[in-house]
């Protein structure tokens, strides 16, 4: 049994595909099936799965459509990392495999499992709807088709990369916040929201932003960068997330949400001391009442264990704070200038 390839005859490797199996009709819990096939260089994970399905076990279920890396159907976890099966070379995976000769194939995380490698994409679509992931044109429908908006290359470049997204949900699967909270907006939807927000043809920036700064929104991201690292189209998703935050602060003001207040507290501490004043951070982020209600038990425990952060007066400025402050001011000025030229 050889997955037929053509060109490279320098060898074959016996590869065991350890495939996640779950059929909700009969299985009470998931299990793995092993399929061992010889694979030549140049064969993708998807071609191997196709071969297993066609020749060994027709019940292995996964989605695949274009098989060329553009439709986004075959997102799955290959040796733990979310990616497209159709653009992933078996030999490349093997080279990094912890268990020699074994490739583990599992469904994407953070979306409801349907069967084997197939997960339900509806929650993602629902979020796209919730966050208005469309251009709501400034042009009335009746006027459309008559003339073009004139869009500068500069504006085009602002959303060009974001429009590469094929909604494969690799980022959704890798997101650490979604693992804790499935209601979180999710990286793909933030990316799309950003793409709409920087489009001058769109009329509902403010409305979209208002939704994005609510609970489960843009401020919940913890900057783990896993979305960006796993993006199959190499889209700088974190730039989009930062973009939305900057936009939110600029247009809605610092005091608007706990997220923006948290960011402000960070900035002010860093500017003053060169480090964080942790003791008062929760109060400055969420207010006194919230902090007392939610963090008092933990504060008590910290006191018992003598793990409390030093009170503000005792936080000394970091070494070299003067030079740092100068750099900080320069940077702030630079960012301001950048924003101004952006607006033009």
């Amino acid at each position: 049994m050889t997955v037929p390839t053509d060109q490279h005859k320098e060898g074959k490797k016996d590869v065991t595909f350890r495939v996640f199996r779950f059929n909700p009709q009969v299985d009470s819990k998931p299990y793995f099936d092993d399929y061992t096939i010889p694979v030549e260089r140049g064969v993708t994970v998807l071609r191997s799965l196709n071969y297993i399905k066609e020749h060994i076990d027709g019940s292995v279920s996964f989605r695949a459509f274009c098989q060329a890396g553009i439709c986004g159907s075959c997102g799955m976890r290959v040796n733990g990392l979310s990616q497209l099966a159709c653009t992933t070379q078996v030999w490349d995976v093997l080279a990094k495999s912890r268990e020699p000769g074994i490739i583990k194939v599992e469904p994407l995380r953070n979306l409801p499992l349907i069967k084997d490698l197939i997960v339900d994409m509806d929650p993602l679509v629902d979020k796209m709807k919730h966050y208005s992931n469309w251009v709501d044109s400034t042009m009335p429908e009746a006027q459309m088709g008559k003339k073009e908006f004139l869009i500068s290359e500069e504006e085009f470049l602002r959303y060009d990369k974001a429009t590469d997204c094929i909604l494969c949900a690799s980022c959704v699967s890798e997101c650490s916040i979604l693992r804790a909270n499935r209601e979180y907006v999710s990286p793909a939807v933030l990316l799309k929201s950003y793409r709409m927000n920087v489009d001058s043809r769109d009329a509902i920036h403010e409305q979209r932003l208002a939704e994005l700064v609510k609970d489960h929104g843009v401020w919940d991201c913890t900057h783990c960068y896993r979305c960006q690292e796993s993006c199959v189209k190499s889209i700088p998703i974190m730039d989009a997330i930062h973009g939305i935050r900057e936009d939110a602060i600029e247009s809605r003001g610092m005091k608007d949400t706990s997220g923006s207040k948290h960011a402000e507290a960070f900035m002010s501490d860093i500017e003053k001391k060169g480090k964080l004043i942790e003791a008062t951070l929760p109060i400055r982020t969420n207010g006194v009442v919230w902090t007392l209600q939610n963090l008092l038990p933990m504060a008590m425990k910290m006191i018992m264990k003598r793990r409390t952060p030093p009170p503000p007066p005792l936080v000394k400025s970091a070494k070299g704070i003067k030079i740092f402050r100068k750099m900080f001011r320069e940077m702030t000025e630079h960012v301001k200038q950048d924003h101004k030229s952006h607006k033009k």
């Binding site: 251009v135 459309m144 008559k146 073009e148 908006f149 869009i151 500068s152 290359e153 085009f156 489009d199």
Partner: peptide, 22 residues
Amino acid sequence: PKIIRELENMGTPWSRMEDNTI
């Protein structure tokens, strides 16, 4: 021409010429 402009008006990110047209 009408349908291309219609798509443009709805948000399709067409590449642009130097004079900012499609």
